[in-house]
Design a binder for these strands. Structure first.
Lengths: 336, 336
DNA sequence: CTGTTAGCGCTTTCAG
DNA sequence: CTGAAAGCGCTAACAG
């Protein structure tokens, strides 16, 4: 590692004081246009880039933003989270920040992340938090943070949320309008707010069409249990003609169960998903689903976090990311 | 943000000098066991964690490692890269480093990444580099770095590579042993070393079984063009009874093409992939493929990089990650 | 408009 | 074995 050029070197080369160089390079007032130009050109010529540690030490800002995934499983494998991370990354890069990434296993979701304890970052975006004590610690420490897709209710925390209810409403409504009156629902864990909201949207759509809600048509539980959930639905004496899955991943598991049962999509049974991950359009048949603007979630979160970082008394504002039904080939339509 | 406790505070509380605290906390010699214990307990009681910027400024090591994806497309969406990133992350976390992530679009793959210019990281792992000039710059700057899955040949650079040739050899050999004598090959870009190696493995397996190689049975080009590549193969007057795809993603595209052509896997045509991404086992039918130990690639890369960072005269050593055929349901087997 | 100086939090001589 | 002091690279306050 070659020893890099410092502000002191530039000062010497330009025959000025360090502080003058600092002013010139940071667009501070109190310096003549001429010397500023002079200094800038010398700095450029020598590829001067200020040392992050030096700056951070003085400024109390690192210009780093942390991204922390708190999950028991492997969040990066989940295409939904990958896309959110993409959005986060691009917003961070755009603002000339650096992104510090950490995955924390659920059981460690209790102690404040290293990156914030050692003041490596100015704030963090937290994905999939579950642990209340964890959040309380962050609040006490005064760390700026924002939540994406929390796995529990944190009403007082800044967060960016999906318009979940609306999404499943649209999906269910679409099925009903296409002649499906018996529609099943599969998904995840009722304790997770976003899932509960998705279930609600389903219920509301049924109610809207005066279709009675039946507990037997909804199978919840593990996120990855779409296969067995669907099997149960198929075993019902009067099986549904359509299924709405709370996640595309569940829908894809449903595909397998349906296939294994010797049935065909959409001829024998229709499926609609939620999230619109890349796989949705690659599935056979291509999956009709509710699109979530994942990159947008990420970038909005970073924007919010940045204002949180730089304002004294933060106003907690919760952006709701909109949602849209995208029609593909997994739903049998009534001819009308 | 509450103002954090510093080494000075601890010194005051313990009635010793700063330097003594530093020695105690860093296991430096020249300090009595008693005072060391005393200081440690006080530091612990006050949740003292040294400031990263302060340390970095003095030590010339940040304890941060950069991870840079250089690709035209969206690397994080690619489950193959996600898994590599997982491996990198876990190794970094294990060593109490921080991970600084950056995605650089191909056209910007020319200027040294910000994180290294401003000395935020001690070294970087580079995924998917293509640009020679870029690498030369890094070498000149003396940045420690290691390559994963480079898109061009960089013979003198430290890198971790997959046993590609062996993988496609195994895949092709497996098909031939199961009675397939006309096997197609689809995949990506011949200019990419890993792809060229995979093609070589295929050729070698054919040669091994005395089957003549036919250029018409191999379709290269875009990574995402598995669909059209397969269509071309299916149109052949004497179409292959099996296809080996250089990537699982290609194989999945092939699935769709085969399905759209009204054929069935594996009854009408067999397919084997490469990479063993999560989707492979979820596909219908489950895809027989060559498993790559992706997390291992990531963690090995970080281990290598760490020694690179801490040694004066680095010895360039290229770990080869092994590979394994995993049998699933996409190959029609000869009954014997 | 420019330069001097101090200090951010830490480690490392070097005296005592 | 312990403490005082200097300095890493940077910015800000203050004098000139």
């Amino acid at each position: 590692m070659k020893s890099p050029v410092t502000i002191k070197d530039i000062a010497k080369l330009a025959n000025v004081a360090q502080s003058t160089v600092s002013k010139a390079l940071n667009n501070r007032p109190g310096i003549s246009a001429r010397t500023r130009q002079h200094i800038i050109s010398i700095a450029k010529a020598h590829n001067f880039v200020p040392d992050a540690a030096g700056k951070a030490l003085k400024n109390r800002f690192t210009n780093n933003i942390g991204v922390v995934f708190c999950r028991e499983d492997y969040p990066l494998r989940n295409p939904f989270f990958s896309r959110i991370l993409e959005g986060i990354e691009s917003e961070i890069a755009f603002n000339h920040y650096n992104l510090v990434l950490q995955l924390i296993p659920n059981h460690e979701e209790t102690t404040i992340p290293k990156m914030i304890r050692e003041r490596q970052v100015d704030g963090i975006v937290l994905i999939g938090v579950r642990n209340k004590a964890f959040i309380e610690q962050l609040q006490q420490a005064g760390t700026p943070f924002i939540l994406i897709d929390p796995r529990d209710y944190f009403p007082d925390c800044p967060q960016v949320v999906i318009d979940n209810e609306n999404g499943t409403f649209l999906a269910t409504d679409y099925l009903i309008r296409n002649g499906h009156r018996k529609v099943g629902f599969i998904g995840g864990d009722l304790a997770v707010p976003s899932f509960a909201e998705r279930l609600n949207g389903y219920k509301k759509a049924l109610a809207f069409h005066n279709i009675p809600y039946s507990r037997r048509l909804v199978k919840t539980g593990g996120f990855e249990e779409g296969y067995t959930q669907t099997q149960q639905l198929l075993k019902l004496s009067k099986r549904p003609s359509a299924i709405v899955a709370a996640y595309d991943i569940s829908a894809l598991h449903a595909y397998r169960a349906i296939n294994d049962a010797g049935m065909r999509i959409p001829e024998d049974i229709s499926v609609v998903g939620f999230d619109d991950i890349d796989l949705a359009k690659m599935a056979i048949p291509a999956l009709t689903t509710v699109r979530v603007y994942k990159e947008q979630m990420g970038s909005v979160a970073v924007r919010q976090l940045r204002t949180l970082i730089h304002t004294e008394t933060p106003v907690s504002f919760t952006p709701i990311i909109p949602v849209k039904l995208v029609e593909r080939d997994s739903v049998k339509k009534s001819e009308d």
